[in-house]
Design a protein around this nucleic acid. Structure first.
Lengths: 344, 344
DNA sequence: AGAACGGAGCAAACCGGTTTGACTGCTCTC
DNA sequence: GAGAGCAGTCAAACCGGTTTGCTCCGTTCT
């Protein structure tokens, strides 16, 4: 019983052929007689044999695994609904391709480097880079380590982008523009923005898009607060904004968690939402639809992005097209959290 | 100069020793002269050599990786804040031990079985079983596949537990009891419970604890609704409870997301929280502290549980103690969402 | 009829580590 | 001074697959 798993040699013996033939019967890299193939498969099945992936990895130098390093503080990982959805999307694609996903959550830059080095030591074939920053060091790092990679971004890659890493991106700017348009149409002129950490490309993209949208309406974009995507920072930023003598009548938050915390804080000071203050979020978590009022947000299809990122990485691993790809899934979802501003 | 990574043979040559000596210098399984060891390390460093984990895995039949299969619908994964925190906790321990974490998100039972079979084919050494159900088939499955495992639970393992899998558990019952005590002390007598899917051991544990607590106060435990942990189910369950002619004055939810959705729904019908209705959650997500009113909840230390689960699994892999371990980190956090019931 | 060709399969080398039996000096004992 | 014991090292076997050079055989072409 149990003990050790059968090896390809056991299967070969049972089928009366050589190891090489068993391997070829499965890979099809050379013709194998139909009848032989059947004998091999039958033998494998009765022995319940599956190829050892360690041995396969050693022989082919491909691990059938891709890696994902998440470098964020635990509080943020805990509340941000992006990661789980993104990972679920990846998985759907990877599982179909027989690939595995290796995950690492790191706290420091050294840990991050160490994680990529372990990856390169024959643990994964490629990686997906999340939370890209301006002048991110990782594309260079992973290339030097010999890992294929794909980056996620919130804007089209610039022509002068220094790397040849394929980019999977959304166009967050357009969605932010739409949100601002909605608010301006409702009559708002004093609109604030609470961004994520601006070192992130995605946070900066939304931040810049907000400024551009306000400017295009000839409104001042001077109420800008940098948050960090946590509920706590959403509350603090909101407190600061509402404290001013001429408080804004609407706040555009860079994610839902900050928006919900901000909304709650505003209410606790006696303001009504949306009558006295309109708020919008970003990323449309499931909870947002079930609040009262519902939170106006931007659905970005995190799972789709995960799937596309995985697909793109698999293609890159096959040596195919390195082109960047736009994931066009951002949809503004209007709910009860916005309304015309109060009369002065 | 990319090309191929150096091998142990290159290091051996550079240091003027044999492959075996290099290996022994690193593993220390046999004595190696101090001076030789230094030469080997120096050579390895200058060649930037790291052992190939595929080769290591093949030679030792240990992969230095553990696996985690998450079998939940994407909506739930997206909102539940438990997984990310749990994983971050695991990772902290695993990284320190040089182990990797392989993650799989599956949609069906076949996919789940397939995932464990891939694991067993030399991808991971052991697995952590989450969301254990009554009569769960996985302990048996993974044992047959030759994988070491650890289970997470919300109650002490019964004596007659059919398996010898170590269990890492919290005692959710005590926390639920405390919540009920708080509400009863405030004068509530009509308290409802919205549970998670009762096939899960953790959901059932909280559900049963609720009934026991109510009974011990000689109150009827007859307002029980089974939800599924999503915001949508929290709202629906709440709608059903509040629709009754004698609506409850307090609702104990099995997680925060359902509680927040329920709270929002109640408000949208004109009820005030906590004046007209008290609500409590479970798992204490970061957001809960920043709502207004803050959500009374139970902090369960998901990250600590992750760390302990990882530690326990590593111990099991070393062949050490299979004992079950209690993670004593549940703390009831009282916030503004509960208050005495309205006078009739 | 002989050459050329391609399908089928075997045996052996290889991937990059780990493990172990055997050998060499050396020191320590009696 | 012979034997025991041990630190230190090497060479070779091994882990379980994949890949390739070569042989064997039957068919087709000229």
């Amino acid at each position: 019983m149990a003990g050790s798993r059968p090896t390809i040699g056991d299967v070969a013996r049972a089928a009366g052929v050589s190891k090489g033939t068993v391997s070829l019967a499965y890979s099809g890299k050379r013709p194998v007689a139909e009848e032989t193939r059947r004998r091999v498969f039958a033998a494998a099945e009765s022995l319940r044999w599956t190829a050892s992936s360690s041995a396969q990895a050693l022989a082919t130098s491909r691990t059938s695994t891709i890696g994902l390093v998440i470098a964020r503080r635990p509080e943020i990982i805990a509340t941000d609904t992006f990661f789980p959805r993104f990972i679920a999307g990846c998985e759907a694609v990877l599982a179909r391709a027989g690939m595995g996903l290796m995950l690492n959550v790191v706290a420091s830059e050294e840990d991050e480097t160490a994680a990529y080095e372990r990856y390169a030591a024959g643990r994964v074939d490629g990686v997906i880079l999340l939370d890209v920053q301006q002048g991110d060091r990782r594309p260079k790092l992973v290339r030097e380590l010999g890992l294929t990679s794909v980056m996620l971004s919130a804007e089209a890659p610039r022509d002068d982008s220094p790397t040849d890493v394929p980019v999977v991106y959304t166009e967050d700017a357009a969605a932010i523009g739409e949100l601002v348009d909605l608010l301006v149409e409702d009559g708002h002129t004093s609109i604030a923005h609470v961004s994520g950490p601006l070192r992130y490309v995605h946070a900066a993209a939304r931040h810049n898009a907000f400024i551009a949208a306000m400017t295009s309406h000839e409104l001042p974009a001077d109420r800008l607060v940098e948050g960090d995507f946590t509920a706590a920072s959403g509350r603090d930023a909101t407190a600061g904004l509402l404290d001013a003598s001429d408080r804004p009548t609407a706040i555009v938050y860079a994610n839902d968690v900050m928006a919900i915390a901000g909304l709650s804080f505003a209410r606790s000071t006696g303001l009504r939402v949306p009558e006295d203050l309109s708020v919008t979020g970003f990323d449309d978590s499931e909870l947002s639809a079930h609040l009262s009022p519902g939170l106006t947000s931007v659905s970005t299809g995190a799972d789709v992005r995960g799937a596309v990122a995985a697909d793109t990485l698999l293609a890159a691993l096959r040596g195919e097209a390195d082109a960047s790809v736009l994931v066009d899934g951002t949809v503004v979802v209007r709910r009860g959290s916005i309304a015309p501003p109060p009369r002065p």
